[in-house]
């Protein structure tokens, strides 16, 4: 009975900013077939919207690891750190 990642994320201390620190260029995402972001994001925060077909990222659970910034070789992901004092605050690390 392993825990799913969605529940694991609830154990973290996160102070969310109003605006996302991750932006996607949908024109690039549409042309991408591999979509490594979906498989490689450790928080499983990337998905394709069933309604619109667009890529969606749940920035609120972001672990700020930087994986998506690197594996998005088509450069759709623009990723910066959340503003000072926001985002995940690791209590163990």
């Amino acid at each position: 009975m392993t825990m799913k990642v969605e529940e694991k994320l609830t154990r973290n201390a996160i102070k969310n900013a109003k605006e996302s620190h991750i932006r996607l260029d949908q024109t690039i995402c549409r042309t991408c077939v591999e979509r490594p972001c979906i498989r490689l994001c450790p928080g499983r925060l990337y998905s394709q919207s069933e309604e619109t077909g667009e890529m969606v990222v749940e920035f609120a659970g972001c672990l700020e690891c930087g994986t998506c910034k690197i594996v998005c070789v088509r450069k759709s992901v623009s990723w910066e750190y959340p503003e000072g004092g926001f985002g995940v605050q690791y209590r163990y690390g």
């Binding site: 825990m3 990642v5 694991k8 994320l9 154990r11 973290n12 450790p42 928080g43 672990l63 700020e64 690891c65 930087g66 994986t67 690197i70 995940v88 690791y90 209590r91 163990y92 690390g93």
Partner: peptide, 9 residues
């Protein structure tokens, strides 16, 4: 008890 889930490159 799981206390934290973290990741980094």
């Amino acid at each position: 008890d799981l206390k934290e889930y973290s990741a980094h490159i």
